[in-house]
Design a protein around this nucleic acid. Structure first.
Lengths: 370, 370
DNA sequence: TTGTAGGCGTTATCAG
DNA sequence: CTGATAACGCCTACAA
């Protein structure tokens, strides 16, 4: 029954009119040597056949003129363009995609649309994509590896290339996708697949050094989701930098990488005795800070907090959040660029593209006032 | 030259292999009565022809079995499904879209991806869309009416329905789009087009009443972009509520509806002598609050600030922002629902769908301490 | 340079 | 219930 309604609904589409007409035509002409659809008063978009008729040339010539200018005499070119303009012709992307395989779209899959981390990536991708005339198709995996593969497979068949932001599925799945069509990965490094990865080391060592310089000796790292490739990288970075700066570092787990998760981990942070905390992301940092402040702690006098990413809103807090900024927007941009370059035949970059992270010092970190 | 590269790039696509083979086939068979593409070892997705061959039935039967189950005998149905599974068949959405007109996608155009207001809308739309098996296609208009029409036209030809969030183009353009395909508008009301609009009155009157109850007598409204339909509605609401509560209300202009714009308008706010401010959106409120606090004002003791929307991060500030919440996510959801219902043949709702706004009292508003 | 004639994968019509 | 077969709109060898 849903089906029926579904079917009737096509009445809303312009092309339905075509059908009605086409049927009549066929019964009368038999062999449709003249695929001419005559004017159904409506707006139902014009085809290259309409243009051809109006310009007095063959449809194929129209196709050539419109898709690869230069393969047609300047004169007919103009005639055709004028006709196209007059009918305000628009290519039918689907019809073009069929023989061509190209859709002028790129897909982006994010783990969680709710997470502001991805906002910048989305924006970066949309902006640089549409600058090169590509449309962005968005999907979310809801942090589930399974949903992610499904969504990826579905998308992959409709787009020219796919971007996976912080993917949760395993490496092999990703490689399988990449074997089909150009794929770029953000926030994770996978051999043989083009990746854009913030290089956490610079930012982290800046952060740890700054903390050490401010008299901190005991550091805690609040980790993110276990499946996250990044949470491990960041912890590695923190460990290494701490060692180098002769700080002790302890790793704490969070239930989820959100403001709420941050609140919940406050107890553990306190118990750990650390005077400085670096969190897996800004959300955790913000939640943690709120909870600690609510408990009477003074930030940064008694405890310093450093977040990660510099998401939208990180500077809304009081004190504003010190954080290791990942150029998320740039990641989106770079990923799209890589994809489009591959689409033009260029090789994928041999190894992961690294974008710099940097410490953004704001109010939530500073000297320890015993 | 870019063209050439472009062309070569198709080698990356699975379907290129089909071409190579097809060409060979044609030269040998002449009339392609057997459109059979034989196995090109690759993964290049299977077609209903492959299934048909494997199942020993006609392609058209496969099509029926797969698209509208029930029009085929239970037995063959199963055979076909098994075959499809074995070849892990996936429909080609483009091929399907061509005769059908349906693409299983809906488009969403936002004025500014940068603006967190839209994040919730995007999320709501993506979520409820994909729950009903629709994919979201995203585009931005960069606040420009022209870009918006262009993007809209381009999108419209590729999607089943279109959502316009806070559109900047004029009513007639929108009606024209709506005449072609189902269109839903968020944050603006247009006769004859399905709209989802937060009903500001409830939230605003709550806000103004609360302000009045706290001893405020002079109110300022910081307006948003001139082209924004909403900025006018909100000002209307504020004026009316103020009158009702016997407050004086003055309208101030902002340069842009951002944190920065909020900072810049601080001077005017001070000069106005108002002790309470309602801003067009949260961003303005946050910027304004930061600037006032930087200048030594105490919020809310000396001045109360009320934002609009309750965007992500509105509660990161100190004091947390009091704001009139618009259920943006719900707007996205509702818009998609309307669209999909229309796609199923239901009528568009006769008049604008109103979603409730409500005052969220947090720390930035309160009693005036002279 | 332009016209001719398939074919891309699906759906839909019309016989059987 | 199932098989042919013609569209859908566009692209591209190949021939003229």
């Amino acid at each position: 029954m849903g089906r029926l309604l579904n079917y009737l609904a096509t009445g809303l589409f312009c092309c339905h009119a075509v059908y009605d007409g086409a049927v009549t035509d066929v019964t009368s002409t038999g062999t449709a040597t003249t695929p001419t659809k005559r004017g159904r008063g409506e707006k139902s978009s014009a085809t290259i056949y309409d243009i051809a008729k109006l310009a007095g040339v063959n449809p194929s010539t129209v196709s050539r003129a419109l898709s690869k200018p230069g393969r047609v005499s300047a004169k007919t070119q103009k005639i055709i363009e004028d006709a196209a303009a007059e009918l305000n012709y628009q290519v039918n992307p689907f019809a073009r995609a069929l023989p061509t395989g190209r859709t002028q779209t790129i897909g982006l899959i994010v783990a969680d649309i709710t997470n502001p981390t991805f906002f910048d990536i989305i924006r970066g991708a949309e902006t640089t994509g549409s600058a090169r005339d590509y449309t962005l198709v968005l999907a979310e995996s809801a942090e589930s590896p399974e949903t992610e593969v499904t969504a990826a497979r579905r998308l992959l068949s409709t787009v020219d290339g796919l971007i996976l932001a912080s993917p949760r599925m395993d490496d092999d799945h990703i490689r399988a996708l990449a074997a089909d069509k150009p794929v770029a990965v953000i926030n994770r490094e996978i051999q043989g697949v083009p990746c854009v990865v913030p290089d956490v080391n610079k930012g982290i060592s800046e952060a740890v050094r700054s903390l050490a310089a401010n008299g901190h000796e005991k550091l805690a790292y609040v980790a993110g989701p276990k499946q996250s490739w990044m949470t491990a990288r960041r912890w590695d970075g923190v460990k290494a930098a701490a060692e180098w700066s002769k700080l002790s570092a302890v790793r704490l787990e969070s239930s989820k990488p959100t403001v709420d998760g941050g609140r919940q981990v406050a107890r553990d942070v306190l118990d750990s005795g650390a005077t400085a905390v670096i969190t897996y992301n800004d959300l955790l940092a913000i939640g943690l800070m709120q909870e600690l402040q609510a408990g009477g702690m003074r930030v940064p006098d008694q405890i310093s907090i450093v977040g990660f990413d510099d998401i939208f809103g990180a500077d809304f807090t009081t004190p504003a959040l010190t954080t290791v900024r990942s150029p998320l927007g740039e990641c989106g941009t770079r990923a799209v660029t890589i994809l489009l370059d591959m689409l033009q035949g260029q090789d994928a970059p041999g190894e992961a593209v690294r974008v710099e992270t940097e410490l953004v010092v704001r109010g939530s970190s500073g000297r320890l006032l015993v």
